[in-house]
Design a protein around this nucleic acid. Structure first.
Lengths: 338, 338
DNA sequence: CTGAAAGCGCTTACAG
DNA sequence: CTGAAAGCGCTTACAG
């Protein structure tokens, strides 16, 4: 292997303990001894063996972030914030992709101990609250961004019902009356789809407007494009569509524009996530911006508390902020040079 | 901690060695013994302590993937492939973000030993070949997707010069004559910008066409948008722009469309990376598609070879495939229902 | 086919 | 302020 504490101790003429003290910044070391040790340390280019340290301390300095897929822009952006927040606690982040499959989520939940991470941040899609409650692995766990209320673990998310209501109210306020929801789902134990659907329905009900609900399997551009084609083919197409995430909205936008229709004049479109794509599309995309940095920071801070574990408090729900960002896809374009 | 091999051995009435044999699938264990041990294993819900195993074996089962930023779609897509390819070798992947800064790239290169990963895949931006050659850390290293030819490590990339020439030839073939390059850079020791610029110049030179070169600091939408505004303000704006990546192209597209101009009629646009955004933009974006899966698989396979290290071969250069994908932003839209 | 023992490199009470 | 020693949990020659 490399050089060990023993090699350094031998060269410096001190004990292993003393070298360890210097390496770990223990205060009470005489200046002369410290100098000797530091000389040996740099002469041998000593690097601590973290596996050994971990074995001794029962900590690994790593956490896992498990999410459906890294190449969905929302999760890529969120991951970046999580990695940055974790770095402040000197944690490295292992990323695992679940593909939203129940089996993979289960395996990760059950296998965190194997991976020897100090904690897990999971963005669940398939696994349900009762299953989480039955978990035997006691590794620190924080749920990020999906439903599972009253679950057995700390949980951070935006207020999805409220966010969906906000967007829908925005569309109603612009005079739209045939407003479709694109992104409902069967079969998900913990997804946000039911919450977003609930918010949509609340807003429509308050104004006595009819519902049009379209389901998808996955929150991807291709599905948004296909579902939108279905809506356009209807006898009375919608004049606005609230898509449950930005990818669906961008896919839908493609379909509308490719059909020669105008956004928002013929169909207004809104999404949710505020991924960067929507800030540069033409038209730009109206959306709900979750405070991703806040989501990440809260998740990491909660995990930190659980890992340090001095206070064994009951699981808590945290709500991160969100705000509506009206853009061209609903309010139209500013006059331009064209 | 949890249950150890010793606990299992005690319960099964065998030695620790025997339990270890069963856990590790060692062949020569009598069926009776195996049954006893497996009973104890599952009764105690034994999980191996990987820190201990790592300490003993000098392997961690983890590799690091260091890239500029995870929320750039190209890197997010690439990461996904790397994680999947690594999983086939039972490696977990730690992701580190360099932000493209020299200091962070250096720290990661120098610090891999600290992190106790078995190897590192680095997508370098700032660090140069000579610096890499002087590296003291002997952890296995593979460079991914940027220049640094004849460097001291295995390297996988597409043929950037050729790719740039392919796009530029495509634009020329469509009759464009004032073709700008957007994405040149100062100051990067290892970036692909000089290679892409070279390919662009080769194509123009072959046809006796004039060059227009615009520099950017970073390959992001905002910079593409700003740089395009500069081009449009020129006395004689280009009739086509080859942007050095898709994000720059999507930013440029936004500027052109927002100015009331048409793509490709007034200005044709092409990028490089084939990120999903460009498949759903309106117009869709012509681009070069690097074979990202191949890039990832080769990188992981090379790292595997280095880590297993039976053959100490000299560093090699590998070239992954790429292909031009003509889309609406250069060849125009198919007739539609509008 | 199975066991007893050493040792990977570190940290941590325990002495002094 | 410093040292000698134990032990974290595992794997691996070495015996038998």
């Amino acid at each position: 292997m490399g050089t060990s504490l023993r090699d350094v101790a031998r060269l410096a003429g001190v004990s292993v303990k003393t070298v360890s003290n210097v390496v770990n910044g223990y205060a009470h070391v005489s200046p002369a001894t410290r100098a000797k040790v530091e000389g040996a340390l740099s002469q041998l280019d000593y690097r601590p063996n973290l596996s050994a340290r971990n074995l001794r301390q029962g900590r690994t300095g790593m956490i896992a972030l498990a999410l459906p897929e890294l190449d969905a822009p929302y999760f890529a952006e969120l991951s970046r914030f999580v990695i940055d927040a974790a770095a402040e606690h000197r944690w490295l982040v292992i990323i695992e992709q679940t593909g939203g499959s129940l089996e993979r989520e289960r395996r990760i939940l059950d296998g965190v101990r194997d991976h020897q991470v100090d904690g897990l941040i999971l963005s669940p899609v398939a696994v349900g609250a009762e299953e989480l409650a039955a978990r035997t692995d006691d590794t620190a766990l924080v749920l990020l961004g999906e439903r599972i209320y009253d679950g057995p673990a700390d949980h951070v998310a935006i207020d999805n019902v409220r966010a969906a209501r906000d967007v829908t109210e925005h569309l109603i306020g612009l005079g739209r009356r045939r407003i479709a929801a694109l992104g409902a789902q069967d079969d998900t134990a913990s997804g946000t789809a039911p919450l977003r659907l609930a918010g949509y329905r609340q807003a429509l009900a308050a104004h006595g407007l009819p519902e049009t609900i379209v389901k998808v399997d996955r929150y991807q551009r291709a599905e948004g494009a296909a579902a939108m084609a279905g809506l356009l083919a209807a006898a009375e197409p919608p004049d606005a569509v609230f898509c449950f995430n930005d990818l669906l909205a961008l896919g839908a936008m493609r379909t509308v524009l490719a059909a020669g229709l105008r956004v928002p004049e013929d169909v207004a479109l809104a999404g949710l996530d505020d991924i960067e794509d929507g800030r540069y599309s033409t038209p730009t995309l109206t959306t709900i911006a979750p405070d991703k940095n806040q989501l990440a920071r809260i998740a990491v801070a909660l995990l930190k508390q659980r890992i340090d574990g001095s206070t064994a408090r009951p699981p808590e729900e945290f709500t991160a902020g969100h705000r509506l960002i009206p853009r061209e896809s609903t309010v139209g374009r500013a006059p331009s040079g064209g």
